[in-house]
Design a protein around this nucleic acid. Structure first.
Length: 303
DNA sequence: CGCCAGGTGGCTG
DNA sequence: CAGCCACATGGC
């Protein structure tokens, strides 16, 4: 890519409950992650805004402000691009939510007390792109997390685009338009089930036709959005809630059937078996509208 | 080797 | 409608 003079850095002021280490702890939990790179506290990521491509590097100063630097761009950086990138980052780190009510609940909750002490300042890290969030949910079904990352890497490297910078590749998740034109035979080198390939292509087609869009889902009530999502083939209650939590940002999203959630509760309560759904419902009775945060913090206790 | 991983759709009685 | 089952692969 040719050299260009890039625009000035962007500064984003951070909310009170933001801790860089807590968030980097989540972002670095899996070495196989291919959607960004973390090094020396810097987060480097390729971002697509429609047809434009940017390579940005995020750093955080004293947990007070985020600095976004443009390392590279495939075209001039326009003002509206900068606005969209800020929007993306605010969604990614959930910067527009005041999470002090969650801490109030959690500090009085025997199950959440220790996790919130340990991970204070962690936000629910989002997946702002709906297609990426749905695919990531589908890929993660029923398999261990490390393997899910392997599958995502295979999918991204097979169909995504990358930006190269200083000898490294930074990937952009494949678009639904691109995947909607593939068939399951194109997925033969990706070691996921045929069923999952069908789900991913089906989701891409629904998005390409406009039947499913983030914009529309964001306008819906929680229950309507959940219903719309579970009508998609391959999206059951777990995946729907996962997407409601990580992309659509409903605080009350709650993947209650999640085996990781069950195991976290089992360990924290020193149980010799997994809790039942009824037991989890009883334990979570006071989490109203913060189920997503509670779940995310409980997951962090495991990996 | 068997069982479990951030489940789901399809089939059966 | 509840109860099974297959599904690709890796770690332990």
């Amino acid at each position: 890519m040719t050299f260009r003079t890039l625009e000035d850095d962007i500064t984003i002021m951070l909310p009170e409950d933001f801790d860089l280490e807590a968030n980097l702890g989540y972002l670095t939990r899996e070495k196989n992650e291919c959607m960004y790179e973390i090094e020396d506290g810097f987060i480097t990521k390729a971002i697509a805004i429609e047809k434009a491509r940017f390579l940005i590097q995020i750093s955080v100063i004293a947990n007070k402000q985020m600095v976004v630097r443009f390392l590279d761009a495939a075209q001039p950086v326009e003002e509206w691009h900068r606005e969209e990138i800020v929007k993306y980052i605010r969604e990614w780190f959930d910067l527009d939510r005041d999470i002090t009510p969650f801490y109030k609940i959690a500090e009085a909750d025997p199950l959440l007390k220790t996790p919130v002490e340990k991970f204070r300042g962690l936000r629910v890290i989002g997946i702002p792109d709906l297609f990426e969030a749905l695919c990531w949910g589908v890929l993660g079904q029923q398999i261990n997390i490390a393997f899910a990352y392997t599958l995502k890497k295979q999918l991204v490297e097979a169909f995504g685009e990358c930006m190269e910078w200083k000898g490294k590749k930074y990937w952009i998740f494949p678009s639904y338009k691109q995947i909607s034109q593939r068939t399951t035979s194109d997925f033969s080198n990706i070691k996921m089930t045929l069923r999952k390939s069908e789900y991913v292509i089906g989701i891409a087609k629904l998005m390409a036709s406009g039947e499913i869009s983030k914009e529309e889902l964001m306008k819906m009530s929680f229950q309507d959005a959940e219903k719309k999502l579970t009508q998609i083939r391959g999206v059951g209650p777990w995946t729907a809630h996962y997407v409601l939590m990580r992309c659509l940002r409903f605080g009350s999203a709650f993947p209650i059937d999640d085996v990781g959630l069950m195991n976290a509760i089992k360990v924290l309560r020193k149980m010799d078996r997994k809790p039942t759904k009824n037991e989890i419902m009883a334990l979570s009775a006071s989490w109203k509208n913060w189920e997503s945060y509670a779940t995310f913090y409980l997951w962090r206790t495991l990996y």
